[in-house]
Design a protein around this nucleic acid. Structure first.
Length: 115
DNA sequence: CAGGTGACATGAG
DNA sequence: ACTCATGCCACCT
């Protein structure tokens, strides 16, 4: 995992709280070619209904390269918003990562016709 | 301290 | 299936 105690402390110095850091940590733990929903992240950090707070944390994303925020999507499979714009950019990045995308929507474990 | 905002989720119409 | 309204948590003014 990329998140070290030193980095966490640094993030705190930058104004990030433990909650925010936990979100960034969980996000950095997302394997390539995989996507995770805000809800999942919220649950991972121990706040199942803090989906909004998760988004707020990623929004303050201090290290866009260290934290693959583009791998975090909505529960509906839609990219949601990214950098204050449409998630088009995120979708393309995910595609490049190897994530299966359908009609601009991430192939979550829904009723996949064939997998 | 109180009010408003936001990269969301869920339920009801 | 789509849109509107409410709830949630954390952060900022």
């Amino acid at each position: 995992m990329i998140m070290d105690v030193l980095l966490r402390r640094k993030l705190k110095e930058m104004g990030m709280t433990d909650f925010q850091i936990s979100v960034l940590d969980a996000t950095s733990n997302i394997p390539a070619g995989q996507v995770r929903t805000y809800k999942e992240i919220a649950i991972e950090i121990g706040h199942p209904n803090a989906c909004r707070a998760v988004g707020t944390a990623l929004r303050k994303n201090p290290f866009p390269v260290t934290i693959p925020c583009h791998r975090v999507i909505k529960s509906s499979g839609e990219p949601g918003k990214y950098s204050g714009k449409s998630g088009t950019r995120k979708i393309k990045l995910l595609q490049m990562e190897g994530v299966k995308i359908s009609n601009g929507i991430v192939n979550q474990k829904r009723s996949s016709p064939a997998e």
